[in-house]
Amino acid sequence: MIIDSASVLLLLFFALGSYIQATTGFAFGLIVVSGVSALGLAPIEVTAFAVSVLSLVNAGVGLQGGQWREVNLRAFFGFIIPCLPMIMIGVWLLHYLGDNAMSLLQLMLGVSMVVSSVVMMLQAHKTRSPSTTSAFAVSGVMGGLMGGMFATFGPPITFLMYRQPDSQAKIRATLLSIFFCTGLIRVGFISATQSLNITTLLLCALGFPVVALSAYLAKRYPLPISNQVMRRVAFSLLLLSGVSLTWQGGG
């Protein structure tokens, strides 16, 4: 892969998404998939697979040092179990729409980005009691479908986790663990059922060191701003990317 302007932009999206996710526990897939797709830097199918692979790197670095011990196991399993079958359905939809209705795929991704960013911007403060098992199950179904299609499992579970009466460390560890597990499942399923081309493999190789370094820097040298400000920055970027994709898909 020749390092040109498109490749540099890809690296910037990888770095930005990895840094924000390592700081807040989410947003890597949303930022990379929406940004790369909006600018037409790579096909959605290729980008989504690369995001799944690189999410493993980001989450692995973020969970180093015993951070995984902070995981909210009730939330983790409540999301993962109903998520599994929906991942496979989402992957099938991505393959079908990618071959037959790319504009519809862009429109669906764009609308999901807009709705996700607006809802997350307006979400209420933490609740005083944990959410119900059914709430996590619904989140798992929605997240599995979005994740299977776009490698963006985050919005449903992130919205729910940030409403829990948990510490920031527990929320972050739970989200990173979920993204590691879902990324592993998605990569395994696609690798077993589809052939991977050289462009996909090169994109993963290109992003590997960037994602690992950005996640490490986020842990070692976090920006002197609050998590609330960081989340608002991420939501704003997602909103702009979603609007652009919606416009492209509906045009």
Rank of each mutant, 00 (worst) to 15 (best):
L202N: 09
G207V: 07
R231H: 02
T193S: 11
F208Y: 04
A205H: 05
S236K: 04
Y221F: 13
I225S: 10
A234K: 08
A218Q: 07
L237S: 02
C204I: 03
L196T: 11
M230P: 07
L217Y: 09
G207S: 07
S241H: 11
L238G: 02
L213M: 14
T200I: 13
R232K: 15
L223A: 15
A215Y: 11
F235Q: 00
M230E: 12
Y216V: 08
C204G: 15
R231C: 07
C204V: 13
V243C: 06
R232T: 10
V210I: 14
L217R: 14
Q228M: 12
L206R: 12
S195C: 05
T199P: 00
L238S: 01
P209D: 04
S214Q: 09
P224G: 14
A215F: 08
R231M: 12
F208P: 07
L203E: 00
S236I: 04
L237H: 01
L238K: 06
A234P: 09
G207H: 07
A215M: 06
R220I: 08
L223N: 08
R231D: 03
L202V: 05
L239T: 02
S195M: 12
G207D: 08
A234V: 10
A234T: 05
T193D: 05
S214R: 10
V210S: 05
Q194W: 07
L213N: 09
L206N: 08
I198N: 06
P209I: 00
N227M: 10
L238P: 00
L206I: 11
C204E: 00
N197P: 10
L240T: 01
G242R: 01
Y216K: 12
R220M: 10
L238C: 03
G207L: 04
G242Y: 12
P222I: 10
T200Y: 04
P209C: 01
F208E: 05
L201V: 13
A192H: 06
I225N: 09
L238F: 10
L203M: 03
C204T: 10
L201M: 14
C204L: 03
A192N: 09
T200D: 08
V233N: 01
S241N: 15
P209A: 01
K219I: 00
R232Y: 15
T199M: 10
F208R: 01
V233W: 03
C204P: 08
S226W: 01
N197A: 06
R231T: 14
R220E: 03
T200V: 15
L217I: 12
L202T: 04
